[in-house]
Design a protein around this nucleic acid. Structure first.
Length: 485
RNA sequence: GGCGCGUUCGUCUAGAGGCUUAGGACGCUGCCCUCUCAAGGCAGAGAUCACGGGUUCGAAUCCCGUACGCGCUACCA
């Protein structure tokens, strides 16, 4: 019986960072759990000692926390079914491996690596699929006992009975069927006494009462091995869901070689966790409608495994960028403020002091024009310092022969103002233009250029109001002196 | 090679036999708005639903085959 409240796990191996594909797997697990009032468990599959990476677990946990995928049980957090690090559960795996040997569902194998590669090469040369030949299955009790006593290197292998149909249900793919003859006598316990993924995974999922196994499609071919193990141990199988893969542009499995794949990379580039999550949830899932902008709580609400796609999705950044911009735009100014301050602290303006009111005004003015927090600085540096140069294109296009004269006149008018409002700047400019028998645009464009150094940006009067009268006049005078056609 | 899984605009996708002249989003183009750039609105280009058979009055949707792609095929996970 599947318990009423599902229990799912994200079970990465600590390779050093959280892969975006892993993030999506974790997210789907998390969403499924939360959608069903279930539990989301983090388990570290560190059974390969050769691939151990210092600090990897901490990185993983940190990345998950950053993304907001809080787990209910796991390393450092604890829980009823710990420990949650497989390397701390070795005796448990041994116990079940022994039980399998007892039941003749597994056996000791003493074959050397040389013999193994030899038979494998042979089989491949003849066009067969490579499979262990069950040589050690036929060792006598005495031989086994002897070799064990001599402490000969050995592994424990699964004893797969051939010619049996192994069928299991997968929520994403429906019924999947394998012939047991194509399944190798998989190693369960390695010669270093560590378990392989297959054993550890099945044992832990059972002991941790995992009800739904939600993982990447690369595991689909291994699933029948796991099913055989559940059956051999007399355990109920969990429900499987094999997720479509995240792909490179060439449709191969998303890899490090072809771009950034770690969550940390995207975080460092300034992507919002909301956007990354939103982007990744759409790569393989859709509620069945046109909704594409999601907050985490909305995802929880709408998620279901039945709506997960079957085919892989190319991880291409176009949509991520637009989602990032949209999430950024929808963030309240109060949340944006500390982010901008942090960004400033890392910029060339780190020693300048800007008060919060000022920054809030900048945020308001630039909000619709940025895709990343750093854009507040990069796209409108003129809020932080006077322009050092003037865009050539814009000068060519907007600076006319009468510009300097008009600006001079404007400077003298602005100079008379006291605490000017946005409207004051606008009214005076319009009046000045009128007096010279020209349209406001004739003045607005060169003023914008003078004050910002560029041709685009927020409304001109917003800019003037934000930088203030003193700065405005200073910049206008500087432009009058420096811009030549 | 074997086994498994997949295949709808460039990309992510909607589609559960008639609602489909295949819808949306990103990107692209144009227009509107406008002091500029964005945002927003509107419009457009873009998919013979991999191909071939079949089932059916009717198929992107069901079945079979083929092709192509991917995954797995380790004492890695």
């Amino acid at each position: 019986m599947i318990s009423e409240f599902p229990r799912v796990r994200f079970a990465p191996s600590p390779t050093g960072y959280l892969h975006v594909g892993g993030l999506r797997t974790a997210l789907y697990n998390y969403l499924f759990a939360k959608n069903n009032n279930g539990s989301f468990i983090l388990r570290i599959e560190d059974t390969d000692r050769n691939r151990y990476v210092e600090g990897a677990v901490e990185n993983l946990i940190q990345a998950l926390r950053w993304a907001g995928l809080e787990f209910d049980e796991g390393p450092s957090k604890g829980g009823e079914f710990g420990p949650y690090m497989q390397s701390e559960r070795l005796d448990i795996y041994k116990k079940y491996a022994d039980e399998l040997i007892e039941k003749k569902k597994a056996y000791y194998c003493f074959c050397s690596a040389e013999r193994l590669t030899q038979i494998r090469d042979e089989q491949q040369k003849q066009g067969f699929q490579s499979k262990y030949d069950k040589h050690c299955l036929h060792l006598s009790e005495n031989e086994i006992k002897q070799k064990l006593e001599n402490n000969e290197p050995r592994v424990i292998r699964m004893n797969v009975e051939p010619n049996i149909k192994v069928v299991f249900d997968d929520i994403v793919r429906g019924a999947v069927e394998f012939d047991s003859s194509v399944i190798d006598d998989q190693i369960l316990i390695k010669s270093d006494q560590y378990p392989t993924y297959h054993l550890a995974n099945v044992v832990d999922d059972h002991l941790m009462k995992i009800t739904h196994v939600i993982r990447g499609e690369e595991w689909l071919s291994s699933a029948p091995k796991h099913v055989i193990l559940y059956d051999a141990l007399g355990w109920e199988r969990p429900v499987f869901s094999h997720l479509p893969l995240l792909l490179n542009a060439d449709r191969s499995k998303l890899s490090k070689r072809q771009g950034d794949v770690s969550v940390e990379d995207y975080r460092a580039k300034g992507y919002l966790k909301e956007a990354l999550l939103n982007f990744v949830v759409l790569l393989g899932w859709n509620a069945g409608d046109d909704k594409e902008f999601y907050y985490l709580n909305e995802m929880i609400e709408s998620f279901s495994l039945e709506k997960v796609n079957k085919s892989g999705a190319i991880f291409s950044l176009g949509k991520l960028n637009s989602l990032n911009a949209e999430h950024l735009r929808k963030k309240p100014d109060a949340e944006l403020l500390p982010m901008l301050k942090e960004e400033l602290a890392q910029s060339r303006y780190k020693d300048f002091l800007f008060d919060e009111d000022y920054l809030l005004k900048v945020i308001e003015a630039m909000k619709e024009r940025v895709s990343f927090v750093k854009d507040y600085i990069e796209k409108s540096p003129y809020f932080f310092e006077a322009p050092l140069e003037y865009e050539e294109e814009t000068v060519k296009k907007r600076w006319k022969e009468d510009s300097a004269t008009l600006l001079k006149k404007l400077v003298s008018e602005y100079d008379k103002l006291e605490n000017p409002s946005k409207e004051d700047y606008e009214n005076i400019l319009k009046k000045t233009a009128e007096e010279h028998g020209t349209g406001a645009a004739r003045l607005i464009h060169p003023v914008r250029l003078a004050v910002s150094g560029m041709g685009g940006g927020p409304g001109l009067f917003d800019i003037l109001y934000i930088i203030g009268k003193k700065e405005t006049i200073k910049r206008l005078n500087r432009a009058i002196e420096n811009i030549r056609i």
